[in-house]
Design a binder for these strands. Structure first.
Length: 289
DNA sequence: ATTGGGACCTGCTCGC
DNA sequence: TGCGAGCAGGTCCCAA
């Protein structure tokens, strides 16, 4: 659930408080179903041993991943899945329900990694060890990065016959978009979610490129989206505000803000796509308004 | 090879 | 009122 704008918001909140600080203690409350948050490859003991006592040199974001660069040269990577939160609280605060990992940060308080659904994940990445695990560095371009041009987007989409909605969710093509922002970007670009990626015209690709960046920038400036069923909050526990700007996501049955047509949904690639059948045309060439 | 669908997880909503 | 089914979705994994 936390997509790029939400993760960016969390990073911006935590970064000034954590930079240069030491992770003095790690608590992983026992889970009868095992340490799912560490499932990638790190054993609990190895993880605790390698991270405890390390200084956080910098905090970065790559797509939906948070990267804690440690003074050991390793990077602790946190993905929040869809229900994950990272809450920074004063020392000795009561752990919120579903706290999976608790980091004590000397001089800053405690970070609670809260994740009811346990889709989130924590692991260590070390270039030196030549880890073969899937890592954030093998993902597609950052949509807000300088290298993400309409040409790059076009090239990525050319290679895919899948619906554009599915392609935009593919992190190997473009990294950081989830269900909310793919729906919103496609609406702004006037492109039907089921359009075949490779069939988009140059004009549409340009518009889509612009829409993706616009949506993400706006969402970041409003600290992300906290929709009805999404308990997203930043590291201080504050809600996002982009939900007031949603045009289609979770607005099924409501009127399109642009034309008044009822917003519909369809299943694509296992997800619910929200769209306006009038503003987002199926056939190419008719996609203008 | 590319694409699609299930599994993982839990809380919540809805219908009987 | 109570309970179970269904849904939400990011990513991995497997199968067609």
């Amino acid at each position: 659930m936390p997509e790029l704008p939400e993760v960016e918001t969390i990073k911006r909140g935590l970064s000034p408080r954590l930079r240069g600080k030491v992770i003095s203690r790690i608590i992983i409350p026992p889970d009868p179903k095992g340490d799912r948050m560490l499932r990638r490859y790190t054993s609990r003991r190895r993880f605790v041993r390698k991270v405890t006592g390390r200084q956080i040199v910098t905090l970065k974001r790559r797509a939906k991943y948070l990267l804690f660069e440690l003074d050991s040269g390793e990077t602790m990577i946190i993905h929040l899945g869809m229900s994950g939160q990272l809450l920074l609280r004063p020392p000795r605060a009561t752990p919120p329900r579903h706290s999976r990992i608790i980091f004590t940060i000397a001089g800053a308080g405690e970070i609670f990694l809260v994740d009811p659904r346990k889709f989130g994940e924590v692991y260590l990445y070390s270039e030196a060890e030549g880890d073969t695990v899937v890592n954030p560095f093998s993902l597609g371009p950052e949509p807000l990065g300088r290298s993400f041009t309409p040409q790059v987007l076009g090239k990525k989409l050319q290679s895919s016959r899948s619906p554009i909605k599915v392609a935009l969710l593919n992190q190997k093509l473009i990294a950081g978009l989830g269900n909310i922002y793919t729906d919103e970007a496609l609406f702004r670009a006037g492109i039907h979610p089921r359009r075949v990626s490779a069939d988009l015209t140059e004009k549409e690709i340009k518009l889509l490129h612009k829409s993706i960046r616009e949506v993400l920038r706006e969402a970041i400036s409003l600290h992300g989206t906290s929709a009805a069923d999404r308990q997203y909050v930043d590291s201080e526990g504050a809600l996002g505000k982009f939900q007031t700007r949603l045009n289609v996501y979770q607005r099924e049955g409501e009127k399109c803000s642009r034309c008044g047509t009822i917003i519909e949904t369809m299943k694509l690639g296992g997800r619910t796509a929200h769209f306006c059948s009038r503003c987002q045309k199926k056939a190419k060439g008719k996609s203008k308004q």
